Computed example of a mutant assay.
Amino acid sequence: MAPKVHGSVFSTATMRAFATLHEKGIEFEVVPINMGAGEHKKEPFICFNPFGQVPAYEDGDLKLFESRAITQYIAHEHHGKGTELVYKDAKKMAIVSVWMEVEAHHFDPVTSKLVFEQVVKPMMMNMETDSAVVEENQKKLGQVLDVYEVRLSKSKYLGGDGFTLADLHHLPTMNYLMGTSTKEVFEARPHVCAWAKDILARPAWIKTVAMQKQA
């Protein structure tokens, strides 16, 4: 039986799960959750995630929530199939884990605020963007990407020479921001810019984005 992903094709967290499944070549079923109607805050979804946040993942009798936990499960469970997004070698995996933590604690908090201000508010909520919040967070993002620029001057990808979850986890918010003025923050750093273009062009990610047009 194919695994099920409960979520929205427009949710950055859900898109992480979709991208991982596409990278591994795993067929899956999407169970749409209408977040505008608040379906993620009530039954039956709340039985999958008591915090009421998408996505949730079903694989047989296994039920998971939290997107980064889901991607790690998929990558480890299907090791040897599709793109190897994790390593069995402890030292190599430790480096990948470091940059996965960096994404979760340094990159995502800033980029999520920028996505909300520059994409969600004007396009989905008919609200004005707060330019002061954008300016503040673009500055913070620049400081984060300065660290990335140094790292990516030494290796093609964040976790080493190969594309891993450390890179994949960045894709959803990055993708949205490439249609905003924040794109310039990425482009101002040559190695970051090259890395971003590389991972955004991956076939698995293109498939993930295409799911929005089909919805």
Results as ranks from 00 to 15, higher is better:
104 A>L: 14
147 V>Y: 13
167 D>P: 03
68 R>I: 07
66 E>M: 06
172 P>D: 03
125 M>S: 05
35 M>F: 03
76 H>R: 14
143 Q>L: 13
107 F>P: 08
117 E>C: 07
95 I>F: 11
148 Y>I: 04
199 I>R: 05
82 G>Q: 08
16 R>L: 06
162 G>N: 11
188 A>K: 09
58 E>Y: 05
12 T>E: 03
176 Y>F: 14
16 R>D: 00
93 M>P: 01
43 E>N: 05
22 H>G: 06
157 Y>F: 15
102 V>P: 12
87 Y>F: 13
196 A>W: 00
55 P>F: 01
174 M>S: 15
198 D>I: 03
181 S>I: 08
49 N>C: 03
21 L>E: 01
76 H>W: 12
126 N>A: 10
151 R>C: 09
42 K>W: 01
83 T>L: 10
118 Q>P: 10
52 G>N: 15
57 Y>K: 02
47 C>Y: 11
102 V>I: 15
33 I>Q: 02
100 M>R: 07
88 K>I: 02
110 V>S: 04
48 F>A: 01
63 K>R: 11
28 F>R: 05
211 M>C: 10
138 Q>M: 15
82 G>W: 08
18 F>L: 04
90 A>H: 09
54 V>I: 09
148 Y>A: 02
124 M>Y: 08
195 W>P: 01
77 E>H: 08
41 K>D: 08
110 V>K: 04
137 N>Y: 14
187 E>W: 10
125 M>H: 06
192 V>A: 00
92 K>V: 03
82 G>R: 07
164 T>K: 12
1 M>T: 07
172 P>T: 02
131 S>D: 15
196 A>I: 01
134 V>M: 08
67 S>E: 03
147 V>A: 12
49 N>E: 02
105 H>T: 11
84 E>I: 10
7 G>H: 01
24 K>Q: 05
27 E>M: 09
119 V>R: 03
102 V>A: 15
16 R>A: 00
191 H>E: 11
18 F>I: 03
98 V>K: 14
168 L>Q: 13
195 W>Q: 02
96 V>I: 11
84 E>C: 10
118 Q>F: 10
147 V>M: 13
178 M>L: 15
94 A>C: 14
66 E>V: 05
65 F>T: 03
74 I>D: 00
136 E>I: 08
113 K>C: 15
5 V>D: 00
3 P>W: 00
172 P>H: 03
178 M>F: 06
186 F>H: 04
131 S>K: 14
62 L>Q: 11
122 P>L: 04
195 W>T: 01
188 A>N: 07
53 Q>H: 08
103 E>W: 07
179 G>H: 12
52 G>S: 15
4 K>G: 00
74 I>M: 01
32 P>C: 09
83 T>H: 10
70 I>P: 01
84 E>P: 06
206 I>P: 06
212 Q>F: 09
153 S>C: 07
207 K>T: 10
29 E>M: 07
127 M>K: 15
112 S>K: 09
102 V>N: 13
189 R>G: 07
187 E>K: 14
18 F>G: 02
154 K>L: 06
137 N>Q: 14
122 P>M: 05
13 A>S: 15
78 H>E: 06
91 K>S: 13
48 F>W: 02
116 F>L: 12
43 E>H: 06
73 Y>V: 00
5 V>K: 00
130 D>S: 08
111 T>N: 08
66 E>A: 07
107 F>M: 11
76 H>V: 12
207 K>M: 12
202 R>T: 12
19 A>L: 14
34 N>V: 11
97 S>W: 05
172 P>N: 05
108 D>V: 10
